[in-house]
Simulated scan of single mutants.
Amino acid sequence: MTKCIFDLDGTLTREESLPRIAEHFGIGSEMETLTREAVLGKIPFWASFQKRVHLLKTLPVREVADVLYDIPLYEGLIGFIARYSGSCAVATSNLSCWVERLAERIPCEVYASAPKLEEGRLLGIETLLDKAAIVRDWQREGHRVIFIGDGSNDASAMELADIAVAAGITHRPAEAVLDVADYHFQDVDNMVETLEHIMSETTDRSETTNPE
């Protein structure tokens, strides 16, 4: 079976989520710079993410989740996920406590980084999601894995994936992503059409190999 793993920010969302949070709370300038440099791989993602979480950790967790619930999504990709929900997942480095409401709008399993919380207050990051580990786990189960992403923190997972798709629909993907990508799309419709073709090829092959 073919499985699809989607990055969230800038891949399924029409904008990066952390700058949106910062803008809502009036602390946008430094956040925008840190996010842009992390996406492009100019500074290590882990260091950037720690700094960005530190900037936001005093904010009310529930209010942050409410802000992200309204972030615009690429409906064409959400429609694709709905059609193949059992074969799709989202892998985001963002914190589960922040994206839990947004995840309600995405019809598949969502993997996220684990926050360190105390009485509903964010203290920091407990565990950063290892996207490559999800790819490896699915491949061990015998699946062919497609990974769709745009940021430098997607590159290691994309390099392991059987098919790597660079999503250039929100901004230019990181060079590390482009280096390992089998496809690079700047248009959602073209991306969906290609993913549909790959999924239908898999179905046709399965039906031919294992006729009823």
Rank of each mutant, 00 (worst) to 15 (best):
D66Y: 04
F185W: 01
L12G: 07
K116R: 14
R140E: 11
E175T: 11
Y74K: 09
C108Q: 08
G149W: 02
R172Y: 07
L34W: 05
I78Q: 08
A166I: 08
T58A: 13
R144I: 09
R105Y: 03
T2F: 13
G151I: 01
P115I: 07
T35K: 06
G10C: 01
S85K: 13
R36S: 12
E196N: 10
E37W: 09
L55M: 14
T2E: 12
E30W: 03
G168I: 09
E196H: 02
Q186C: 11
P211H: 01
H197E: 15
E207Y: 10
T170F: 06
R105S: 04
L18E: 05
L160K: 06
F49K: 05
S17H: 01
G26Q: 06
S29F: 00
R62H: 14
L128G: 00
Q139N: 11
L128Q: 08
K42N: 13
N153I: 00
C97P: 05
E193L: 12
H143L: 01
C88Q: 00
A91Y: 10
H143I: 06
E212S: 13
T127F: 12
G168L: 08
T92H: 01
R105T: 07
V53T: 11
A176N: 02
Q50A: 09
I106Q: 08
V177E: 03
K42R: 15
C108S: 08
R83F: 01
A82F: 02
W138I: 09
Q50K: 14
D70W: 12
A155T: 01
Y69V: 00
A103W: 05
P19W: 02
L128N: 01
T33V: 15
V110T: 15
L8E: 02
L73F: 04
V67Q: 04
E30D: 12
E119V: 12
I146Y: 07
F80Q: 04
E63K: 14
I21K: 03
Y69S: 10
E30I: 11
D150L: 07
Y183G: 03
R36I: 11
P60N: 06
G28C: 06
L68I: 03
F147W: 05
C97F: 06
P72T: 11
D154W: 06
W46I: 13
A132D: 09
W46C: 00
E159A: 15
D137T: 13
L68R: 04
L160P: 02
H143Q: 08
P44I: 05
V177K: 01
E32A: 12
N190H: 14
A38E: 04
E196V: 13
D70Y: 13
D9L: 04
L34S: 05
I5A: 07
T209C: 12
G120I: 02
G151F: 04
L55C: 10
V67D: 08
L117W: 06
T127N: 11
R140H: 07
D204F: 13
G28K: 10
T11M: 03
E75D: 14
R14T: 08
I134W: 07
I27A: 01
G168F: 03
G151R: 03
I71M: 12
L160Y: 02
G151A: 10
S96V: 09
N210W: 15
T35I: 08
R140I: 00
